[in-house]
Nucleic acid binder design. Structure first.
Length: 216
DNA sequence: CGCGGGATTGACT
DNA sequence: GTCAATCCCGCGT
């Protein structure tokens, strides 16, 4: 049940297009020891579907970590934001408020600081047999945490994503990548202002958050 | 070196 | 709606 991994080309495009098209795609996290001896027994793979994203569109975007730097308009290039200037497809992971991590994927041409924040995901499938309403009710709900994956900090905690994955190349990584997923119709996609960027002047009004409308 | 603040979350009034 | 937790980063000194 695995899809085709997204190539680097997918990310070398307008950040808004990438943010929109990441909706419905499958974020994959492989967790476990890298030592070959322990790998087989203890590795596990988690697949979740991306349902909400935000675009951070380069050096002029006052909401972006890479904006407003001394080198404007080239962008604020610091130790922290360096990854955003790197090749598209890299993971940009940062610590926020001292306690949560946020996962972004770098977009556009190398040297241009832009990225898409993954704001929410849903569990794509259960980690075991779907029809488990029989005898084994304990195993029936490992991923009922569906609702708790709405938020960038929460999904990183669930997927065990932290600073160690900052700079991970999601095109080649064996720990974190993205696969093809659902093809969405335009009507399924919603747009809104980004969250938590009131400091961003006129850029706080941009409708650069994208989400899958819940079915009603 | 010190200080202010944050692409959040959960608890609480 | 308000607020605090918690710590790294960016910048001024």
């Amino acid at each position: 049940m695995q899809g085709r991994r997204l190539s680097r080309k997918f990310f070398v495009r307008s950040t808004l297009a990438v943010a929109r098209e990441l909706l419905g795609k499958v974020l994959v996290r492989k967790i476990g020891p890298t030592s070959p001896r322990l790998r087989r027994a203890r590795q596990k793979i988690i697949r979740v579907m991306i349902i909400e994203t935000e675009a951070y569109c380069g050096p002029r975007d006052l909401a972006s970590h890479a904006s407003q730097g001394p080198a404007w308009p080239a962008g604020r290039r610091t130790k922290r934001t360096e990854i955003m200037f790197g090749p598209p497809g890299l993971a940009y992971v940062y610590l926020i408020y001292g306690m949560y991590y946020c996962l972004n994927i770098v977009t556009e041409a190398e040297g241009y600081p832009a990225a898409v924040l993954i704001r929410a995901v849903s569990v794509k499938r259960l980690g075991h047999n779907k029809n488990s309403n029989s005898h084994n009710s304990l195993n029936a709900k490992p991923y009922t945490l569906n609702a708790s994956l709405n938020g960038p900090g929460k999904l990183c905690r669930f997927l065990k994503i932290d600073k160690a994955l900052n700079g991970e190349d999601m095109i080649k990584s064996s720990r974190l990548w993205i696969e093809d997923g659902e093809k969405l119709k335009p009507a399924q996609i919603g747009r809104a202002k980004r969250i938590g960027v009131d400091y961003a002047g006129s850029y706080k009004h941009k409708l650069w958050r994208f989400f899958i409308r819940s079915k009603s």
